[in-house]
Design a protein around this nucleic acid. Structure first.
Lengths: 338, 338
DNA sequence: CTGTTAGCGCATTCAG
DNA sequence: CTGAATGCGCTAACAG
């Protein structure tokens, strides 16, 4: 490995001069800069990041924490998409990205500890928000720079987060169903531990309330993602005395699972039941029928969270921020008039 | 930040002793070990990874390179799934994972250069294999430890890779269609630059040949992933004089797009046309009809590649290996007798 | 404008 | 069994 010293020797200057050339220090003459740069190229020199990190006390790397994959939530195209968003800004500023995908919560917690204590990263992005989250608490207590994608369970004003207005989105999309003449509207959500479920459900309830439609507990179902979840949800639905004519589903992936099961049961969407959901993952335009869904601008969520985190790692006492990414309903074919 | 020195002082020993305790050096008495460990805990000591990397000349981190996301291939659930596989073994050995998701090939190349030259990582996993790939060549020339998930374009015997036998898989699944009575069978693949497309297509051709069915160029379509790709492919299909009764599709995601477009055109699967594909991504059991597809054991691909890469980084002159992960056809509802 | 010195936090000789 | 000394590769005062 060729070091700064080798370059120094070869160019007939001191190591510190080489270091200054690397940093493009203006106090070095153009002449020596040129000379040194040529030598660097000739020798194939590249700075050792670890040595640099050691003295700089910064790694220019951020940790990205996925939710525990035990529940297969990882399968959600939401994640690749948000990684792209993060990636795009990361790349512009020459940062790197450490990915953590633990199986269990405990595993994730350990990885985060390692990242933080070991100075692996300058900051952390949490790609989920759940109630009473150990990782969140840890990060907060440590005073370590981090941002949550989603709405924090507590300390909302102290924790920088990037989110959609999921309450409002939930309300709007439910209102759409109401305006289309639906009155018996069900809500299918993921785990209630997830803040995003709660918010969307809250919006759904608010819309019903505003329209003077009573909230019926039996119309609210919480389930897993994916096939089994969709299956469960439909099973539950079918067991009801009078089944809803409209469905607000908190995630495109759940919709997908339900669509499949619904068809098996001979229930047609949107003729028999209308359906709306959230995220506007690319899949939602491929399904039959294509889904009316809330586009939450996933990439933007990622990009903004990376941006604000990096600011935070650079300026440690940047105040906590809340960044709301606007959403937009995409109307497709899963809703009909009632 | 509490360092090794602080712990040393507090426990009344020298820094080197503390270092030895961390490494669990057997030449340190149990007594002092206990004392020092207690102090470490008390002070909240955690080793600084950068300092350690610097002297160890190893980072215990691996770089994972996704294909360029310009083509949205990233949306494929294949990637989260393989990341999980990698993650699982990474975690067991306390390694970390650097993720690179460049938009363009050039961007990716730069990132890889940075990773390699800057000693960010000990080795690299390439999650794709394409013809004439700059990144592959670079890694090979540098003699940097890396493994390809897929089949290398060249230097097959020199480059460690983890792959399925995609040729065989292609042949088997095509043969299945033939055995079901199909004779006019089309192939829909992704880019021909991708080795995986070539292999699967090769298997398809071999199966036809063996069955004495002539290869028809017009029955082979190459397209993008996702909706537009499926649309294109179906458009092409419909323009044919006599359309195939069986379709071998090189990726579940393409099947998904096609299914949608096919239905719009009033062509029923499997009644009018049978369809098989590859990967057995979770989506393929949610589609209607559920897809008959080749399960390639994605997680295992990931796990094995991580495992063999780590071996390689530890023992630099580990010989090049080829690891073939077995595949298995999963029979579902997208094929009917002809 | 440039060189000298010191030190980041740790692991590893070499003594003892 | 333990300590002192040295250096990993780099940056940052401090001199000049």
């Amino acid at each position: 490995m060729v070091t700064i010293k080798d370059v120094a020797k070869a160019s007939g200057v001191s190591p510190s001069t080489v270091s200054r050339v690397i940093a493009n220090n203006p106090r070095i003459s153009e002449e020596t800069k040129k000379k040194v740069r040529r030598m660097m190229k000739e020798l194939g020199y590249h700075p050792n990041i670890n040595a640099r990190n050691l003295v700089a006390k910064s790694t220019k790397a951020i940790g990205v924490i996925m939710p525990s994959s035990a529940n297969r939530a990882l399968q959600n195209p939401f994640f690749p998409e948000i990684l792209r968003g993060i990636s795009s800004v990361i790349h512009d500023v020459s940062y790197s990205m450490f990915l953590s995908t633990g199986e269990t919560e405990e595993e994730i917690f350990k990885e985060v500890q390692r990242m933080v204590y070991g100075s692996y990263v300058d900051g952390v992005i949490l790609l989920y928000s759940r109630v009473e989250d150990k990782v969140t608490n840890f990060l907060r207590e440590q005073g370590f720079p981090f941002v949550i994608v989603g709405k924090p369970d507590r300390f909302e004003t102290e924790i920088t987060h990037v989110d959609n207005d999921n309450f409002k989105a939930g309300k709007e999309i439910t209102t759409h169903l109401i305006e289309m003449g639906h009155e018996r509207i069900g809500f299918i959500g993921g785990s209630r531990e997830l803040l995003v479920t709660r918010e969307r459900e809250g919006g759904y309830e608010a819309a019903l309330r505003e329209a003077g439609i009573p909230n019926q507990e039996s119309y609210k179902i919480h389930t897993q993602f994916l096939k089994s979840g969709g299956r469960e949800a439909v099973e539950h639905l079918l067991s009801l005395e009078t089944i809803p004519t409209g469905l607000v589903v908190s995630d495109d992936l759940i919709s997908l699972g339900m669509l499949s099961r619904l068809e098996e049961s001979g229930i047609r969407v949107p003729q028999d039941v209308s359906m709306v959901s959230f995220n506007n993952v690319y899949l939602s335009e491929i399904t039959r029928p294509a889904l009316t869904t809330v586009d939450i601008h996933i990439q933007e969520l990622g990009a903004q969270s990376a941006k604000v985190l990096i600011e935070k790692t650079i300026n440690k006492n940047e105040p906590a921020k809340r960044i709301i990414i606007p959403h937009k309903i995409v109307y497709r074919d899963s809703v009909s008039k009632h």
